[in-house]
């Protein structure tokens, strides 16, 4: 079974040379740490920066340079700043190659819910709805089940939706799954995790076709 860092490491393998990538808050933010050195990749943050770098050294924080999680960051050579409309122009206009975000629920048809728990959590969708409505290549980073052990990969989302029929791939602590027309196709198992365990933790339709290899991380 993977921890959050393991999930981030596995997703980092999906990042290709020449990609512009938008990283959501939480596990997705960690992905930047595991992209191989020397690969040409630029990270976009929807508040208005392309070419995000690491956190600043202590004493070098700048209140005017933050990411979408409101964390202080640095920029790399070639970076640029822009306004919010331009930022979402990049996203809506499909100039960003890969979007990685977290989710509370994903359904077997690619629906995603990650912005609201009615009556409980009302933080808002931020840029998530714009991202999932427009991006062509979306990977979700999430835990396979909630704290009570209930599946988060469902037949149908129970929470208010963020987007419909939009998720391509899900990487969890248990598995890598592709969202297909007929359900979640199991691609890889996390180290030490059996197919049976993945079956038990997946409520949505799970497609198991042939040998399922263990992840290589």
């Amino acid at each position: 079974m993977l921890d959050k860092i393991g999930i981030a490491k596995r997703i980092a393998q999906e990042v290709k040379n020449g990609y512009y990538v938008n990283l959501g808050i939480g596990i997705p933010t960690l992905v930047a740490n595991y992209v191989p050195d020397g690969m040409e990749v630029e990270f976009q943050s929807e508040n208005g920066v392309l070419g995000m770098g690491a956190f600043p050294f202590e004493g070098e924080e700048d209140a005017d340079v933050i990411n979408a999680g409101k964390q202080t960051i640095t920029t790399l050579p070639g970076a640029s700043f822009f306004d919010s409309a331009t930022s979402f122009g990049m996203i809506r206009g499909q100039h960003v190659d890969l979007t990685i975000l977290g989710a509370m629920e994903v359904a077997e048809n690619g629906d995603i819910a990650n912005w609201k728990i009615p009556g409980k959590m009302v933080k808002g969708m931020g840029g998530a709805m714009d991202l999932v409505a427009s991006a062509e290549n979306i990977i979700v980073a999430m835990m396979h089940t909630n704290r009570a052990g209930a599946s988060k990969l469902l037949r149908k989302c129970s929470l208010p939706l963020t987007g419909v029929n939009c998720i391509n791939k899900v990487v969890t602590n248990l598995a890598v799954l592709e969202v297909t027309d007929t359900g979640f196709k199991l691609l890889e198992r996390a180290p030490g995790v059996s197919i049976e365990e993945i079956k038990n933790a997946t409520e949505g339709n799970l497609i198991i076709d042939g040998e399922i290899p263990e992840m290589n991380i």
Binding site: F57, G59, E61, A63, K70, T72
Partner: peptide, 12 residues
């Protein structure tokens, strides 16, 4: 004041 909401840094 330019308050910082999430002060994140790395060690030298």
């Amino acid at each position: 004041e330019k308050r910082i909401e999430q002060r994140t840094v790395r060690k030298r």
